[in-house]
């Protein structure tokens, strides 16, 4: 498994994380779980003392009583786990920074589509056409994915041109209206150069957004979020490098 691109996402509440349970005293069987069982005995101050240390031999006979445990760091004891609550808790609750990233990246990607749409009528150069096609396909897939991620979490899904702003400033790398007009007015080699320069800047902006995401406390913790953001970074870094080469070849 490498990246996330078309997976559905679950609905789940924005809950607080499950706190670790109290340490399990050595050898104690704190959480003997039966397959069909949903409840789990958690050691509490009020519970009776644990049974004496159990030998491996005893355990061999408890084959039908599997247990779920959470090991500690090296040298630390294991802990019991409230298994019935894990399903909710192991989805890391998403943060405002996660939502902002997804909500911001949709119009950010959408602007790349707008730029790519200019290519058809403004240049004959095959490599630019292929680049635009590639950008169009990957970013459309990702816009869909981001929309699904937000919708499943009950968050607003911005329209592709809802806003291009992050707070009161333009999101990193995005073209101003004047930039877009300049690009739209270009033709042939002039257009190619502008397209590459603007798209490099645009992609670099996405990298900035990924860095900002991971620089936000608690963000990027969800499996889905982590894989998607990692993918955006890896993918766009490759494209930036290729575009810089294309640009160099034109100088």
């Amino acid at each position: 498994m490498k990246v996330c691109s078309k997976t559905g996402f679950p609905d789940f509440p924005k809950t607080e994380s499950l706190m670790k349970k109290q340490p399990l005293r050595t050898g104690a069987v704190a959480c003997l779980l039966f397959l069909a069982m949903t409840a789990c005995a958690t050691p509490q101050a009020s519970t009776p003392p644990p049974p004496p240390q159990e030998s491996a031999g005893d355990r061999a006979e408890t084959l039908d009583s599997p247990r779920v445990l959470q090991p500690g760091a090296p040298g630390e004891p294991s802990q019991s786990v409230e298994v019935s609550q894990l399903a909710n808790q192991a989805h890391r609750p998403h943060t405002p920074a996660d939502v902002e990233f997804m909500q911001g990246m949709i119009p950010h990607h959408a602007q790349a589509l707008d730029m790519a749409a200019l290519v058809e009528e403004r240049t004959q150069n095959r490599d630019i056409h292929l680049l635009a096609k590639r950008i169009e396909i990957s970013q459309r897939d990702e816009i869909e994915l981001m929309g699904r991620w937000l919708a499943h979490r009950g968050e607003d899904v911005p329209g592709e041109h809802a806003h291009h702003m992050m707070g009161d400033h333009l999101m990193p790398g995005m073209l101003t209206e004047a930039d877009m007009a300049e690009l739209a007015a270009g033709h042939d080699s002039e257009f190619d150069r502008l397209f590459l320069e603007h798209m490099i800047r645009h992609h670099e902006g996405a990298i900035v957004m990924v860095k900002a995401l991971f620089a936000s406390p608690g963000a990027g913790q969800e499996t889905d979020m982590f894989t998607f953001a990692s993918h955006v970074e890896a993918d766009q870094l490759i494209e930036i490098r290729r575009m810089k080469e294309m640009l160099d070849n034109r100088r």
Binding site: T7, P10, D11, F12, L35, V68, H91
Partner: peptide
């Protein structure tokens, strides 16, 4: 998948995928 390694509400939950 045993309890603790599955989201009963969502079979495709990434954080519980078997590998």
């Amino acid at each position: 998948r045993p309890e603790g390694f599955v989201d009963p509400e969502f079979p495709g939950a990434f954080p519980f995928a078997n590998t």
